[in-house]
Design a protein around this nucleic acid. Sequence first.
DNA 1: CTGAAAGCGCTAACAT
DNA 2: ATGTTAGCGCTTTCAG
Lengths: 333, 333
Amino acid sequence: MVTIYDIAKQAKTSAVTVSLALRNSKRVSEATREKIHKIARKHGYRPNPLARGLVGARTKTLAFVFNFSSVDLSQDLSYMEYFHAIAQAAADKEYKIYFHSSNVALPIEELISDISHHRVDGMILGTELDEQERKILKETDIPTVIVGKDICSDKLTGVFTDDEDGIKQVVKHLLSLGHQRIAFVGKNNSETSIARYSGYCSTLKEANIRIDENLVIESDYHMDFGRQAGVQLAKLENRPSAIVAASDQLAIGIIAGLRSRGFKVPEDISVTGYDNLHIAQFTSPTLTTVDLLRSESAKTIIDVLFDMIEKQGTGKRIMTPVKLIVRESTRKI
Amino acid sequence: MVTIYDIAKQAKTSAVTVSLALRNSKRVSEATREKIHKIARKHGYRPNPLARGLVGARTKTLAFVFNFSSVDLSQDLSYMEYFHAIAQAAADKEYKIYFHSSNVALPIEELISDISHHRVDGMILGTELDEQERKILKETDIPTVIVGKDICSDKLTGVFTDDEDGIKQVVKHLLSLGHQRIAFVGKNNSETSIARYSGYCSTLKEANIRIDENLVIESDYHMDFGRQAGVQLAKLENRPSAIVAASDQLAIGIIAGLRSRGFKVPEDISVTGYDNLHIAQFTSPTLTTVDLLRSESAKTIIDVLFDMIEKQGTGKRIMTPVKLIVRESTRKI
DNA sequence: CTGAAAGCGCTAACAT
DNA sequence: ATGTTAGCGCTTTCAG
């Protein structure tokens, strides 16, 4: 393991100069810098991030924390696509990702304490928060972006998609196809779901359609729940002609559930998803859904995080746009 | 940030004793150990892994490296499910995961050098390797498990599934349904693919069926390639009655491709997958596929890794079994 | 059973 | 423009 001392010796200079030179400080003359860089390259020198972190400098590492109590992470394709987009954006800036996994939902204080010991430069959260936790999180002094929450403070930025608008676009699309009995699957207490459900309600109201409680199904965003919901709606006497799912995974489950009861999508019932997972182009039928412009939003996440880390920027609330994608799973009534 | 010195002061003892006590060394008396633990708990003390790593001790961190040159990570559901299973198994042992992401395929030396600077206790690789890289990797002195490669050395264990047998089971299943013209999609140079393709060939040979080159399609394990392959096979004059895909994602793509040319699965053509992704239960038709018993194999990976890390165990070759799952995408001819 | 000293690799503050 | 000193938090000798 070659250190700055080794290089210093070779370059007949001191470790400090090497350290400075390698970070391209102006305090080092062009000539020595060149020389040092050359020697470093020759020996394949790489700075030790642990030592760096220990003295309080940048570790060039970001923590990525997604906590799922009920949902199985591996099955949440949406977060996975986010993860990838973020990892990619981080790699572009030469940052590494420290993935915080734990099978228990740690209290937020412990989480922060744990992470701050790893001296990450910033963190990206995708956890659910209660009121108490929101308060604690707002106090954080390590630059943090939280995905899917409308929240901010000095060092905390919330990046969330305009889900109310997204579902609005979906429902309008269905209305324009002549649907009137439109179900909603995926109501729950998460902030995301609240926005999506609210988009559903407000759009129906605008169209003077009463919300039928039988057509609103509370559930998690899990495929398995989707299947149950599909079966449940299929059994209804007064069946809906269209189903709005709060996620693609729900939609996939719903379609499977409907199919198991002998109903075809979109011939018998139209179904819409939300997220535009890659797989949505490959299901049969392909899914009408809402694209979250994930890679752009990941870039936003990283950008704002770096703004906080490197430019002392302050936290903001950032809402990113979404886009309806019409495919085969919806059709005229 | 509370350190062992703070605790030492409170306990009127030295940092060394605290360090020892916290690691439950026998060199500390029961009484002082108790006392120290109590104080530590009170202050929410957490050891600083950076400092630990710097002095060469365990960091309780594992590196996870999956490199994809052509394949988009987020779309590779299979690896994601692996990742999750492994993260879970690691969390059970209180290990953290350091996720190595990079958008360029780093040469293996650089990768190892980079990772070894992070002082991880072990690493899990899922990268492709050429001959040269195999050689270098075998020299590693940091405990390593590589997924999907039949390889081992002192500190290197290869954990791979019995893919030849898996495809064998698939083809036998198709033969038993009366299929004779069976295509194979997903031949390429990866070790995995070689085993799968070899299972295909040997089983057909045993059944005295000649391999028709037109029915073998070289491709990556990507959905998009699957679609192309589906279209290509559909165009054939002498179409296959069944298609064996080397992965579920290929199968999903193939089905979409066939569908786009007006062919139905399994009515017109049977299609099989490989991997048993969670989604395979939700596609229409649901997929006949091969289950990799991923969570068990993840446990094996972690176990063997820990054996190397904590018990100085030596590297092995480990082949894990697989299991055919019959669903809707295959039927009698 | 306990403590003092040294050092892991790096950088910030203070010289020169 | 460069070097010296000190210290980040921890653990591993080596002495009591």
